[in-house]
Amino acid sequence: MSPPRWVIHLPTTLTSPDAATALAVALRDSLGHLTVIDFGETTLSEEDHQSRRTRLWCDTPLDGPDRCRRPDAHPGPCALDRS
């Protein structure tokens, strides 16, 4: 049995889901080299509704160590770009 993983909940003062997503993208782009952070599992929720989470990225495995960086439930094939 593997040891449990821990989740860091990082509240913000942002007031829109688009701004929160932009911050998550900036964090992923600047800290993505840290292997201890699983950005593919990133979710958003309103402060008072934390049980209702929205997954940000598809995270499907691609060739090699990469994972899809497109939005969750995106149309078309998986890719490293965000379009």
Rank of each mutant, 00 (worst) to 15 (best):
S83M: 07
C68A: 08
M1I: 10
T13K: 13
W57T: 07
P65C: 05
D72Y: 08
P11Y: 04
S51H: 15
D48A: 14
G64I: 07
S2C: 11
P75C: 02
S51D: 10
R67D: 00
V25T: 08
L14P: 01
H9I: 09
S16V: 01
E47S: 13
L14V: 10
T12F: 10
T21M: 06
A26V: 00
T12N: 13
R28V: 11
G40P: 12
T42G: 07
P61R: 07
E47A: 15
M1S: 11
G64E: 07
G64R: 11
D66N: 09
T21R: 12
D66T: 09
I37F: 10
R67C: 09
L44V: 07
L62W: 06
T60A: 14
T21W: 05
D29R: 01
S51W: 02
A22E: 14
A24W: 05
G76K: 03
D63W: 00
D66P: 00
P4M: 06
G40R: 00
C68M: 02
A20W: 08
V7F: 01
R55Y: 03
S30E: 13
R69D: 08
Q50E: 15
A79G: 11
H9K: 10
H33D: 14
V36I: 13
H33T: 08
V25M: 12
G40Y: 00
A20D: 08
S51Y: 06
D48Y: 04
R69Q: 09
V36S: 15
A73Q: 12
G76Y: 14
P65G: 11
W57S: 03
G76S: 08
D38Y: 01
L27C: 11
L62V: 02
H9N: 12
R67H: 06
H33P: 01
P3A: 15
F39L: 08
R52V: 03
T15V: 01
T43M: 05
D38N: 14
T43L: 03
L62R: 04
S30V: 10
V7E: 06
G32D: 12
T35P: 11
L62F: 07
P17S: 04
P4N: 09
I37A: 01
G40F: 01
S51C: 01
T13E: 10
C68H: 03
R28K: 15
T43V: 13
R67W: 01
D29S: 14
L56D: 00
P71I: 04
T42F: 02
P77A: 05
T60C: 01
L56I: 09
R28A: 15
R70D: 04
D81M: 01
P77Y: 00
I8Y: 05
A19P: 03
H9R: 14
R82W: 12
T13S: 14
R82K: 06
T13G: 08
L23A: 07
C78A: 02
P65R: 15
V36D: 12
R53E: 15
L80F: 04
D72L: 06
R53F: 05
L80Q: 06
E41S: 12
C78E: 07
L80T: 15
R69L: 09
Q50C: 09
